[in-house]
Computed example of a mutant assay.
Amino acid sequence: MARQQSKIKELVYIGIYTAIYFLVVCISTGVLKLTVPIFNSIMIPALNALLAGVIYLTVLDRVPRFGALTTIGIVMGIFFLITGHFPIAFVPELIFSLLADWLQHGTRGGKTKIYLSYTIFSFGLTGPILPLWFMKQAYINELVSRGKDQAYINHVFAAVTNVSFVISMGSIVVCSILGMWIAQKIYDKHLAGLRGTRS
């Protein structure tokens, strides 16, 4: 009975922190759309990585076993699938969350492992933007099939260059590291009573 109650509690935690993570994604998206006119969508994963570190640490401590990170990735992937994103936008979310989950719970290591797994996890949000560079024509065809005009398409691809790809991907790495560093400072100061897999 105690074991079953523990599993139910973990499922509740996963649900709560998945919802909070989704809210942070929405906040990141909204902030960029309001402040950055062109470059916004390809910077969403980086800004989210900067903001979501505390949520990541909380998930690791509350549910210290394989599956929680993957579940968050699955939920985000389903969201991408049902909200009109490019058809395979959900694939990176599933792959990167699963890889982060395996790295965090299937390998040995300390804080370095947390930084690495969080960085990998943060790349899950690249699903909607990677096709802009690697499947451009298919992406354009998808937009046309949805009735988008040439002006809209030009706006979507205005910032899609080799340079912007390097900036977008590089910023995810930098913001993941910085975001996790900030998160650990906050966590150690205010939430030190929650301990799980972080040692």
Rank of each mutant, 00 (worst) to 15 (best):
M1Q: 10
R3S: 13
Q4C: 09
S6A: 14
K7V: 15
E10W: 04
L11P: 08
I14G: 02
G15Y: 03
I16S: 07
A19K: 08
S28V: 07
V31G: 08
L34S: 15
T35R: 10
I38V: 15
S41T: 13
L47T: 01
L47K: 05
V54P: 05
L57I: 11
L60H: 02
D61A: 14
D61Y: 02
P64N: 12
R65G: 04
F66D: 03
T71R: 05
T71Q: 06
I72N: 01
G73Q: 06
G73T: 01
I74H: 03
V75Q: 02
V75N: 05
V75S: 05
M76P: 04
G77L: 04
F79V: 12
F80H: 07
F80K: 06
F80T: 02
L81A: 15
F90Q: 04
P92E: 07
P92T: 09
E93T: 11
S97H: 12
D101G: 10
W102D: 00
L103E: 04
Q104A: 09
G106E: 07
K113Y: 03
I114Y: 04
I114N: 00
Y118N: 00
T119P: 05
F121E: 06
T126W: 01
L132I: 09
W133R: 03
M135G: 10
M135K: 11
K136Y: 11
Q137S: 13
A138Y: 11
Y139N: 00
Y139T: 10
I140M: 00
V144T: 12
G147F: 06
D149S: 12
I153C: 09
F157M: 08
A159V: 09
T161L: 09
S164K: 07
S164F: 11
F165M: 15
V166A: 15
I167Q: 00
I167C: 10
G170T: 11
C175H: 00
I177W: 00
L178T: 00
G179S: 07
M180I: 01
M180R: 03
W181D: 03
W181I: 03
W181C: 01
A183H: 01
K185S: 11
K185L: 13
I186H: 08
Y187I: 02
G193I: 10
L194D: 08
